[in-house]
């Protein structure tokens, strides 16, 4: 890179400084919250009340506005955790590790929403709450991965050790999650329809459903970003408090 070391310009990496991260995200958060809820409100209201019923599925098709965005974000959250874990392992930026930690419960929530709305949708459509279909099964496995990841964070006291171990788990887990995805495809052909969204327009959902769906997805993405910024800020502050308390104790010890 042709950048000198003294160049402190607005590079992406300057946000590794927790102070700068907090300052920037705090300015961005109100905007993000408003945008997220606006998009969610528009997308969901548009989707629920101003789109026609599907000719085969009736009104149950409207679950799509919750189901597809949350499923999409459940996977993207793991990808984001993978990237931030890599950044932590390679560049040792604490904010990155904390962001991964902050994102995991959000990912669990998205995975749960996708699974539950899927079950509610599957009951009238397939006549069953649950089937061992490849997509459903992979989501269940993804859910287990999230649980293990969060449990490992909680189990270890030393924050740096926890960050290291969970990062490696995230890397290894990603490889195995991918393997599992193809393994379950091989294992059982499913009921689930193919991708609802793809660049290949042929298989997409119809346009009337497509546009509000895109708005709802934008809402979920913005909500995710806002939640992660917010939670990362909380993690940073929690760690600061811990450091301050430790310093206080150390000084007390010296004074005695």
């Amino acid at each position: 890179m042709p950048m000198s070391r003294t160049d402190k310009a607005n590079t992406f990496w300057s946000y590794a400084n927790p102070k700068k991260f907090l300052a920037t995200t705090e300015r961005m958060l109100p905007v993000l919250w408003v945008l997220a809820f606006a998009c969610l409100a528009i997308g969901l209201v548009w989707g629920f009340f101003f789109t026609p019923d599907d000719y085969r599925q009736g009104s149950t098709v409207k679950i799509i506005y919750l189901h597809v965005p949350s499923a999409l974000m459940a996977i993207n959250t793991w990808l984001m955790m993978l990237v931030t874990s890599l950044i932590w392992l390679i560049r040792r930026h604490h904010v990155s590790a904390l962001a991964a930690r902050a994102a995991a419960p959000v990912g669990i929530a998205f995975t749960l929403i996708a699974l539950v709305t899927g079950a509610i949708w599957g009951q009238p459509m397939w006549g069953t709450w649950w089937a061992w279909d490849p997509r459903l099964t992979s989501f269940l496995i993804l859910f287990l991965f999230y649980l293990g990841y969060v449990a490992l964070w909680e189990a270890i006291d030393d924050p740096d050790t926890a960050a290291d171990l969970t990062s490696v788990l995230c890397l290894v887990g990603s490889v195995f999650a991918l393997l599992s995805r193809y393994a379950v495809n091989f294992w059982n052909q499913g009921l689930h329809q193919g991708a609802s969204l793809s660049l290949d327009k042929e298989t997409n959902v119809a346009d009337v459903f497509y546009q509000p769906l895109l708005v709802a997805i934008a809402g979920f993405v913005l909500l995710f970003v806002a939640l992660v910024f917010y939670r990362t800020g909380t993690e940073i502050r929690a760690r600061r408090i811990k450091a301050l308390l430790a310093r206080e104790r150390a000084q007390e010890g010296m004074g005695r």
Partner: peptide, 29 residues
């Protein structure tokens, strides 16, 4: 991963379980 933990047994199972899935699927198949 869990060697330093007190009572890491349950956590160990939770972590290893999803990692075992592909092996189990292909092996049992």
């Amino acid at each position: 991963l869990t060697v330093g933990l007190k009572r890491g047994g349950l956590l160990l199972s939770l972590l290893v379980l999803p990692l075992y899935v592909p092996t189990l699927i292909f092996g049992a198949e």
